[in-house]
Simulated scan of single mutants.
Amino acid sequence: MNRTAYLDIARKLFLVAMLAFFLLPFLWLATTAYKPSGDIFSIPPRFTFSPTLDQFRTVFRLFDVWNLLKSSVIIAAGSVILSLLLGVPAGYALARSKSRFAMATAYFLMAIRMIPSVAALIPFYMMMRDVGLLGTWMAVILINSMLNAAFVTWMMFSYFRGLPKELEEAALTDGCRQLGAFFKVALPAVRAGIIACVLLCLMFSWNDFLYPMFLTKLDTKPLSVALLSAYGTKDITWGTLGALAHFSTIPIVIVVLFLNRYFVQGLTKGIH
């Protein structure tokens, strides 16, 4: 084999090693959910065991799993929809704006997403308390949308800025209004970018812990907060944590697998 073939093999082996390195903790946690309690802390660790569903039975006995899952879905879906409704038109408006401050405005909105989560928590907590939304899904949806919409605006600003204006001008020449050109020409042309924004906002909202922890109550808490219940005062119930992690990770993994092609296209073509 020539040098190129050796380099190709070395590159693939390196990628496999890195993939195994990053997936090993997740695989360990996933298999923990199927281990008997006595095998979880065995020394030395046992790589062979008799699978059991006892950890899942415990989870269903101690938690209202379907209500937790429903809360996660409502919060994530609501945050994504509201973020897109605000961020996509704002990104388009900035991209087509002739103001010399358009670029600075876009990057200022991106800076909003970098605000530490805890810095926005206390004032937002007081606002939700005053308007009577504390303890509801809407409180979490609003704060997630505030941060994610700024991120979507910055992302879509880049996508629309890279879109030739001639496409919309041709639609306007054919009698289409500006709003029609936006919906019929601009939006379909940046579909991959919108899907990339959907997946990123979905992951931000689905995995969020801090805001749901303080802004929801017992019957509106999502799965991300329920995972904390596995941490006791003296130890961690790894079996319970592993079983709950299945419900927390599998839905988002399935969505990403279905939309992965558009996600990669959006990330590689959208930023200019």
Rank of each mutant, 00 (worst) to 15 (best):
N2V: 00
N2H: 14
T4V: 10
A5E: 10
I9K: 10
A10I: 06
F14K: 09
L15K: 07
V16Q: 05
A17L: 13
A17G: 09
M18V: 13
L19H: 01
F22P: 02
F22W: 15
L23K: 05
L24Q: 08
L29T: 04
A30M: 15
T31C: 05
T32C: 04
Y34T: 10
P36K: 02
P44G: 09
P45Q: 08
R46A: 09
T52N: 06
T52M: 01
L53E: 05
D54N: 12
F56P: 08
R57H: 11
V59R: 00
W66I: 09
W66M: 12
K70G: 01
S71C: 06
I74E: 03
I74Q: 04
A76C: 11
A76G: 05
I81L: 14
L82M: 11
L85H: 07
G87P: 01
V88F: 03
V88K: 01
P89S: 09
G91P: 03
G91Q: 06
Y92D: 02
L94P: 01
A95P: 01
K98H: 14
A102N: 12
A102V: 06
F108Y: 14
F108P: 04
M114G: 08
M114S: 13
A120C: 12
Y125H: 13
Y125F: 14
G132S: 12
L133P: 01
M138I: 11
I141W: 01
N144H: 14
M146N: 05
A150I: 03
W154T: 00
M155F: 03
F157N: 02
F160M: 09
F160R: 06
R161Y: 03
L163T: 10
K165I: 07
K165F: 11
E166H: 08
L167R: 09
A171S: 14
A171R: 10
L172K: 11
T173L: 13
T173Y: 06
G175D: 04
Q178I: 11
A181W: 08
A181E: 07
A186S: 15
L187P: 07
A189S: 15
A189W: 03
R191C: 06
R191S: 12
A192C: 09
I194M: 15
C197H: 08
C197M: 08
C197I: 04
L199H: 06
L199S: 05
M203K: 10
F204C: 10
F204N: 15
F204G: 04
D208F: 03
L210T: 09
Y211S: 01
F214Q: 02
F214R: 02
T216E: 03
L218A: 14
D219A: 11
P222V: 01
S224H: 04
S224K: 03
S224L: 03
V225S: 02
A226G: 04
L227T: 04
L228D: 04
S229A: 15
G232E: 09
T233L: 14
T233M: 11
D235W: 14
D235Y: 14
T237K: 14
W238Q: 02
W238E: 00
G242M: 01
S248L: 10
T249V: 15
I252D: 12
L257A: 15
V264C: 07
G266L: 02
I271P: 05
H272K: 14
